[in-house]
Amino acid sequence: MDIQIENLTKVYGAQKAVDDISFNVKTGEVLGFLGPNGAGKTTTMKAITSFLAPNNGIIRIGNVSVFDDPDTTKSYIGYLPENNPLYPEMPVIDYLRFVAQLQGIPKDGIRDRILDMVKVCGLEGEKHKKIGELSKGYQQRVGLAQALIHDPEVLILDEPTSGLDPNQIVEIRELIKKIGREKTVILSSHILAEVEATCDRIMIINNGKIVADGTSEELRRRSQGREMLKVTIEDGERNEVYQALQSLASVEMVDFASDTKAAFEVQSKPEQSSRRAIFKLCIENDWYLTELTPVETKLEDVFRQLTMN
């Protein structure tokens, strides 16, 4: 089920939390929302789940507007809010039954769905405990279980892996990926590695505006623009090598790398590669080329570059 968002704007007092953003998410796509705190990720999610009415804009889920028919669109969505609010005094099973009933699952199907969710989310040993007695990781699983209980077409997860241990994070990521093959998933996170590992598409939001949108490779390439190489050349005199590298036609700039004596950082001119030229240079001068690695821009760098003002 596709999600279409057009010109969404939400204002809190004088501050624009979300400023005229538009995007689509297609079925089978996992979209990762990235952005610093207060960028508008949570507000956008709250608007999609019709918890908050935006000041302006249109949101459609599978061609149904969330303003015209919220009961229908809400039943398409499985939502895990930020901080995972739960009723601490309720036993896990009772809570899942309550959510299943609210989601309108037929009476005879509720038991099976609850048992399914208990299995999928690994709550087997905890199902009769009160939610308040569970550890944070298990509470997070309960939050995920309630979001998934009606087998939703759209899954919206606000920081789904916070509070989980590394093993659980891997499990949850696998689960999200699996669900994302057939369903539409939007998740937000502060953890860049997580977004990179789980999402097909990444959207970076800053100050209520979309500043980048694409796969992680696309984002890296876009911010990088030009080739950056780490080169280590031995047997040559340091300054001589530096001069030779600098004089290559495709090279824009050479820097001494700090870690070893014979290493340099070579930046090529836009749209050009210096790899072949460097190799040839070494042969001509009888130098040993011991390292030639492209330096990848990390997603962290892209993120910082786009969101630091």
Binding site: F51, K74, S75, Y79, P85, L86, L102, Q103
Partner: peptide, 14 residues
Amino acid sequence: RSGTIELLLTKPVN
């Protein structure tokens, strides 16, 4: 206070 109102109102209830 606990935020569960958000959980409740994002279910198909008004």
